[in-house]
Write a protein that binds this DNA or RNA. Structure first.
Lengths: 108, 108
DNA sequence: CGTCCTACTCAGTGATACTATGTAGCAGTA
DNA sequence: TACTGCTACATAGTATCACTGAGTAGGACG
C-alpha cells in the first residue's frame, strides 16, 4: 500500500485508543498490533509519541511493570476521559466516513 | 460537530477530486458543496489552496470563464492524472476505513 | 563478547488544513 | 454617489500530526 501518512492524521491516535480499550497493553505491542492490522509503516517512534501525548492529556492510566524479555513495560489503560475521547473519535469517524461515502456515490 | 481538521488531512483533497469528477466546477462552488455536505468549517482559503496544489501537480485542466454574478471563475476538470489520483485516493480510503472498522469491532 | 529482539525517548522534518487578511466584480438600494 | 452584501480568487503565517533518525538500555543466546 502507498503512503498512508496523511490519511492517518487524526485517526492513528483513535486507533491507539481503540487498541488500549480492548486490552491494557504497552507501546511495543501496540506497534506490532498496528503493523499486523495492515498499518505496516507505523513505527515505534510514532506510537510512543502518541502515547506520551495521551498521557500528557490525561486520557490514560499508566502502570510500569517488569518484563521477562527486556526493559520494563509501560502499560496503558483508558480512564474516564480516555473513554470519552474514544467516543468523540468514533463519532467524528462516523461523521466523516459517511460523508465521504456519500460523495463517492454522487454523480456516478 | 467538533473540530474535524486533523481527520480531514489527507482526505479533503480526495473530496475535492470527487466533486470535480462529478462535475466541472469552480472553487467557490466547491466550498459551498463541502459546506452543504456537512464539512461546515471548510473555508474558501482551504479549498483554493488545494486547487492550486492540484493544478501545480498537473491533476486538473483549468478553464477561466466569465460569471454573471461577479469576477471570472476558474473551472476545474480532472485529466488522466487526476482520475488516476482519485483512484489511488479511493483505494487508500477503502484500505484505511476497513481496518478502522475492524479495530472497532475487535474486543467488544 | 557480539548479535538480536525487546522496550522506551526525543529532536528535527514535511505535509496538510486553518487563520486572517486582501483584492476585486457586480447588484441592489438609498 | 456611497454603502452593503454576495460572489470569487489568492496568500502569508500558524498549528497539528505522523514520520525520520538517532540514541539508550535490558535480557537471551551463540
Amino acid at each position: 500500500m502507498d503512503d498512508l501518512t496523511e490519511m492517518l492524521k487524526g485517526t492513528l491516535e483513535g486507533c491507539v485508543l481503540e487498541i488500549i480499550r480492548s486490552e491494557e497493553t504497552y507501546g511495543y505491542a501496540i506497534t506490532r498490533r498496528l503493523n499486523d492490522l495492515g498499518f505496516t509503516d507505523v513505527v515505534e517512534g510514532t506510537v510512543y509519541a502518541i502515547l506520551l501525548r495521551l498521557e500528557r492529556n490525561g486520557l490514560v492510566q499508566v502502570t510500569k511493570r517488569p518484563s521477562e524479555l527486556g526493559p520494563p513495560r509501560k502499560f496503558y489503560a483508558l480512564n474516564d476521559a480516555g473513554r470519552e475521547e474514544l467516543t468523540k473519535f468514533r463519532t467524528k469517524w462516523e461523521y466523516v466516513s459517511s460523508r465521504i461515502d456519500k460523495l463517492r456515490e454522487g454523480g456516478e
